[in-house]
């Protein structure tokens, strides 16, 4: 079982079992695949450089919608226009955090500086957002109901297995956040 992250003088440290590294690695890579744009970068070099994507549309998949939400409410035209200006670089930023995290968890122990910790806590969050969508978590009550599922012996179907993975990610993220916040307090 993974150990909780700890804030130490060498930075934030953590430890994963080989099976957990494989699980996290495959989750990170699934979400990288989801986030890779469907269309090639613009052939206009300036547009490509600033990340403008004139073809971008609101994602059809609900999990992807949650990763790349509308930035403007109640105005679809404005939201789409903004998406075309910003979505490609947002996708790239998220993919970057997921890729770094996939590399960092290969180390044993895992040692993180605050910037690497930020990327990993972001990556854990994106995984949780996708799993939550697949699990149909729509209200605080839905989320609370899943908290009790914590024994892999109970995983009799895909739904229960996903809930266990979700709870594991929640635990990891909370533990990393505690370590990050405690190192911020010490630095002040």
């Amino acid at each position: 079982m993974a150990k909780p992250f700890k804030s130490t003088r060498r930075g934030i440290t953590g430890h994963f079992e080989p099976g957990e590294v494989r699980l996290l690695g495959s989750l990170f890579s699934d979400i990288i695949t989801m986030l890779e744009p469907d269309t090639a970068p613009s052939t206009d070099p300036l547009a490509a450089m600033v990340g403008v994507d004139a073809e971008a549309v609101r994602p059809g998949d609900s999990a992807l919608q949650r990763l790349l939400p509308d930035a403007v409410r109640d105005d679809d035209a404005e939201a789409l226009e903004f998406r075309r200006l910003t979505e490609r670089s947002l996708r790239e930023q998220k993919i970057g955090a997921l890729r770094s995290s996939a590399l960092l968890i290969e180390n044993n122990p895992v040692t993180l500086n605050p910037e690497q910790g930020r990327l990993m806590v972001q990556a854990f969050n994106d995984v949780r957002l996708v799993l939550a969508d697949r699990l149909g978590i729509e209200t605080d009550e839905d989320a609370a109901r899943l908290h009790g599922i914590d024994d892999f012996a109970d995983a009799e179907d895909v739904e229960a297995y996903l809930a266990l993975v979700y709870n594991f990610l929640t635990w990891l993220q909370e533990s990393l956040l505690q370590a990050l916040l405690s190192s911020t307090r010490t630095a002040r």
Binding site: R66, L67, P69, A71, V72, T86, Q93, Q122
Partner: peptide
């Protein structure tokens, strides 16, 4: 506000600007 909204999205928070 636009920059901050995109930053919130990069963290996975649900944000809009108005």
């Amino acid at each position: 506000a636009e920059r901050d909204t995109v930053a919130m999205h990069s963290f996975g928070l649900w944000a809009t600007f108005e």
